[in-house]
Design a protein around this nucleic acid. Sequence first.
DNA 1: GTGATTCCCGACTGAATTGCTCTGGTACTG
DNA 2: CAGTACCAGAGCAATTCAGTCGGGAATCAC
Lengths: 156, 156
Amino acid sequence: MRLSTKGRYAVTAMLDLAIHDGKGPVTLADISQCQGISLSYLEQLFAKLRRDGLVEGVRGPGGGYRLAKTAAAISIADIITAVDEKVDATLCEGKENCQDGDRCLTHELWSSLSTQIFEYLSAINLAEFLARPSVQAIIERERASQAGAEKMVMSS
Amino acid sequence: MRLSTKGRYAVTAMLDLAIHDGKGPVTLADISQCQGISLSYLEQLFAKLRRDGLVEGVRGPGGGYRLAKTAAAISIADIITAVDEKVDATLCEGKENCQDGDRCLTHELWSSLSTQIFEYLSAINLAEFLARPSVQAIIERERASQAGAEKMVMSS
DNA sequence: GTGATTCCCGACTGAATTGCTCTGGTACTG
DNA sequence: CAGTACCAGAGCAATTCAGTCGGGAATCAC
């Protein structure tokens, strides 16, 4: 269980998809431009998200990515474990029993804590997260600035 | 806020110190042997822990490290931030307002989540963690094997 | 069909970080 | 003073991060 910028990119992008859920797929180019990260790097992240069945791609013009499940069925933990391939490859994978016997605490103490963080993140799904007031405020602010830039779209 | 093996080493070592709290300092050589990591690496970690006022060293024979505060006054978050110097240096440090205006979710969504994890880890202190049944079970098992190896100590 | 758009896939790279070693100190105690 | 233990810094192999490049394959508009 790692918690790095890689996971942040993935979570933010997934939230982006969740917002546009039901309103057509979102292209990686848009996410790339908005988040300020390279398109190829995003492609690598989404390849993992796709392998884990979290998103599905729609090819061709007007295509992009959309959520493969409902927003409520995708947890933050799902996203992070998908991209941050968990390397809990501890030195002693359960077999070590600390046989020198003096003062020893094995990794079990840590994994106990790590599991709790994982369960905590598992309890948060995209739909619930988006419904939070603090998050809604950001989205509303986004929507306001989006209306201001609507002249660029010229379709609707 | 990162969550890697570095933090795990530190937390596990600090739990080790908390268990032996009041029973004399613990040497790094012991922790090094038991956790299976190098002594110099441990020294680096403990240098950071000491700089943050979490532990204090006792020099000379019979010396070692002990907690600088009570176990209840040290949270897991304290330990992790001490060794895992937080690099939440996001690209746009609050000033970016995502002005291309289309579909954009900034780092604020992530930091909202990151803050919650931090607060969650802040709420757990060493004393409370050690008092948990699952952790106590491990300690008791340790103590049993320690009694088995008591012949090596020959002092008590 | 043709071409444009978009996803898909793999390899490669420079920089940073991790985990660790080595060397040489300094402070304290018996 | 000799041994134990902390303190400090350079350095190093492996891994990861973030990104680049180049080429495919599916889909839609025409």
